[in-house]
Design a protein around this nucleic acid. Structure first.
Lengths: 221, 221, 221, 221
DNA sequence: AATGAATGAGCATTCATTCAT
DNA sequence: AATGAATGAATGCTCATTCAT
C-alpha cells in the first residue's frame, strides 16, 4: 500500500508530489487539503492513499526529498569553488537559488515544528551537519579562524535562512494568497552577506573576498 | 465590542491572552482551538468573542504584544552595557531569556506566514529596525567596521533566531506534545555566538570580548 | 418585569420598539439580533429584558402595534370617501402609504409563520375582518354585487399585499442589504388595481371610477 | 464538486432535496438545520456538501426546482380548459393542488426576502410572466376585458397566494410544530374565488362560468 | 432603571480518511 | 490502478438570555 508497482503508478505518485509541493508553497501545510492536492494532480481523492499513508506521511516524504536535493545543490556549489572563500560563496548561492525555485521547502519547514518536530529537526540538523564538516575541514586546513564548528554552523544556517526569507521570498509574494515569490538575492546584498560570514569565520582572504565591500577592522587600526 | 470597560473585563481579557500564549506555545496556532484556550482561561467560549474578533485577531494582538515586550527587553539589555561589545552581548542575552520564557512568540511566528503574513513581517521588521539603528550609531561612532547596517541586521536576526531555536527550545521540549522547552543557552555556546557576531561586525575589542574564547585568526598566524 | 413604571422607562421602551422596527425592516426577524437592536436604541443589552420577555415577545408586541395602526389608517382612509367606490380607493391608498412608511410590518409578517403562527394569523384575520364588515355593509346597501364577503375579503387582502410588495417595496430596495424601500404606488398602477378590484366586487360606478381606465365588458357588448 | 457523477450520487442528491423540502415545509428555512436534513435523508452531514455549496445554495436550487414544477402544473391545467374561463379555473386548480402537495414552496418563499431576495423575486416574476402572457393573448382574442396585463397578473398572483395560504395551508397545520397542512380549497370557496377573478378580468361568460354562483351585478339591476 | 460581562447551547462548514465499484 | 461517494468528528463563531453591580 505504498510503493508504486507499475510505471503508471510511478507517474501518479510523482504528479502527487509535484502538486503537493506547489500547494504547500502557496498555502502552507495546514491549509493545504488533500482535495486541493489531488485536484491539482488531476487524480481522484482516493488515489492519494494508494501512495501515502496520510497527509503527514506525504509531508515527511516531501521534506526528506527536498532536503536531500538542497544539500546536493549546496555541496555541488561548494565543490565548484577553487578555494575556501569561493566554496562558501557558491554554497550560499545554490542555497538561495534552491529557495527561489522551491519555496515550499522553506515555508513548510517553518510550520513543521507542530506537524512533525522530528522532520523539522532532521532537516536542519542535516544541513548543519554539512556546514560543520566543511568548517572542521577548513579549520584543520587553516583556511578559517578558530571557530567552534557546531555553533558556527548553526549561526550560518540562521544567516542563510533569514536572508533567504527576507530577500528571496518576500519581494514578489503576490501570486496566490501568500505568493510563491522567487527572486535572486540582489548582488550587493549577497556580497555583503558573504563578507559578513567570512569575517565571522575569519576566512583567509582571497581575490574574491578582498574585492568585496567588507569591513576591515582590527588590521586597519 | 472589543475593549473591556470594567476591571473585571480587563482581567478576563488578560486571562485569555495568557491562556492563549500557553496553548499556542504548546500546540501552535493552527492546532490551538478556542475551546482549549477558553477552557484554560476558565471562561465560557462565548466570552472569547467579547474581546477578540476572531482567532486571527487574538493571534495578531498576541504577536504585537510579545513583539513589543521582546524589543523592550533587548534594548534594556543593550542599555546595560557600558560599551558596544557589552551592549551586543546583553541584547542577545535578553533575547534568549525572552525566548526561554515566551516560547510562544518564537513558535507562533514561524507558523505566521500562512496565518498573517503582515503580522509576521512586521514582527521581524521591527526587531531588525532596532538592530539597524544600533548598527548605524555604532558605525558612526567607529565602534564597528564598515558593514551595511540593513543586511547585517537581518543576518543578526537570523543568527539569534536559529541559535535560540537550537539551544533554547530544543533540549527540553518534552512537556506537552511539543514541549515548551526553556533552558538558558549554555555559556560556552553563548560566548561563541557573541564572538561570531562581533567578528562579523568588526566590533572594537574591549576587556569583555578580549576575554571571550573567540577566534583570533589572521592576527595570530 | 414588563411595563415601564417611570417616564424614563417609557422612553426607553419606545426607543427599543422604534429600533426594532428599523432593524426588522432591514434584516428581518431572524437576522435581527438583540445586540443590534439595543445598539441602535443606544441602550445596554440587558436593558432589553426589562421591557420584553424575549425576542418573540418583542415581535408580537410590534406586530400587534403595527396591525392596530394600519387598520386605523385604512378605516380613516375609507371614512374619507363619500361613496363606496371612494371608500375602497382611499382604504387602499392608506394601506400602501402605511406599507411605504413601515416596511417592517410587511416584511416581518412574511417570516412570521415560523416564528409566531398565531401572531401571523391574527394579523391577517384582523385586517380581513375589517374588509369583510365593509363588504357586508356594502352588500346590504346594494353598493356592490352579490359576493361572498369572506372569500372576497381574503382576495382583497391578497391583491393589496402583492401589489404592495411589488410596487411599494421592490423598486428602491437599495439601502441596507435588502433595502427599506418606500415608494408610492405609481398612479396608473394604483388606478388599474382599484378598477380591478371594483370590477371584481361589482362596485356601483361613481364619477371617480367612471373616469378610471377600467374594462367595460359585458355592458359594452 | 457539485453534480453527481454516478447513479448512486444522483439518488443521494435526490434524497437530500426531498428531505430538505420536508424539513423546510415544517420548520422554515431558518430553523431547518443541515443536521436535521441529512438525518432525514439518512446520510452523513458531510455528504450534504458534496452536492450543495451551502444551505443557501440548497435553498435556491429547491425554489428553482419547485418554481419550474408549479408553472408546468399551472400551464398544463390551463391547457386542459377548452375556453378562456376554463383555462383560468384549471390553472388555479392546479396551483392550489401544488400548494397542498408542496407546502414548502409557499412557506419558504415567504421567508426568502431575507434569505435570497433574488430567488424570491425570480419566483414571483416567473409565475407572473406566465399570467401576463396568458392575459395578453386573451385580450388580443377579445376573451377578457381591457385590463393592464401586468398589473392584473400581479393581482392574480396575490389572490392565488392569499387564498392558498388561508384555505389550503391553515386548516390542518397540526403535524410538526407548524404543520404541513394540505387540504383542497373547499369547492364553494374555489368557485367564489374564480368568479371574483373572472369578474375582475371581464372574462367572457361560458357555460361553465354561467353556472357558477358568481355575482351578476350591473346587468341584473 | 440601567449596565455590560458572562454564559453555553447550537449551527454551518471543512477535511482527512475509508470503502465499494 | 483508479475512482468518487460517503463518513463523522472537529471547529470557529453567533446569539438569546441571565446576573452581579
Amino acid at each position: 500500500m505504498n510503493q508504486p508497482r507499475t510505471k503508471r503508478g510511478e507517474q501518479t505518485k510523482a504528479k502527487l508530489l509535484a502538486a503537493a509541493e506547489g500547494v504547500f508553497a502557496e498555502q502552507g501545510y495546514q491549509a493545504a487539503s488533500i482535495a486541493r492536492i489531488t485536484e491539482r494532480a488531476s487524480v481522484a481523492q482516493g488515489t492519494f492513499y494508494l501512495y501515502f499513508e496520510s497527509k503527514l506521511d506525504l509531508f515527511e516524504q516531501l521534506v526528506d526529498d527536498l532536503n536531500r536535493r538542497v544539500r546536493k545543490a549546496m555541496s555541488d556549489g561548494a565543490a565548484r569553488g577553487s578555494n575556501r572563500a569561493e566554496a562558501e560563496r557558491e554554497g550560499f548561492r545554490e542555497f538561495f537559488a534552491f529557495t527561489a525555485e522551491h519555496p515550499a521547502l522553506y515555508r513548510v519547514v517553518r510550520e513543521a515544528e507542530f506537524v512533525s518536530p522530528g522532520a523539522m529537526r532532521a532537516h536542519y540538523e542535516r544541513i548543519v551537519e554539512g556546514y560543520r564538516e566543511g568548517l572542521e575541514r577548513a579549520r584543520a586546513a587553516g583556511e578559517i579562524g578558530d571557530v567552534d564548528p557546531e555553533v558556527a554552523a548553526w549561526a550560518l544556517m540562521g544567516v542563510g535562512e533569514m536572508i533567504g526569507m527576507r530577500y528571496v521570498l518576500w519581494p514578489t509574494g503576490d501570486d496566490g494568497p501568500y505568493g510563491t515569490g522567487a527572486t535572486p538575492v540582489p548582488d550587493d546584498v549577497f556580497d555583503e552577506m558573504v563578507a559578513f560570514v567570512q569575517r565571522a569565520l575569519g576566512t583567509a582572504p582571497s581575490e574574491l573576498t578582498a574585492a568585496a565591500p567588507a569591513a576591515r577592522t582590527q588590521e586597519d587600526s
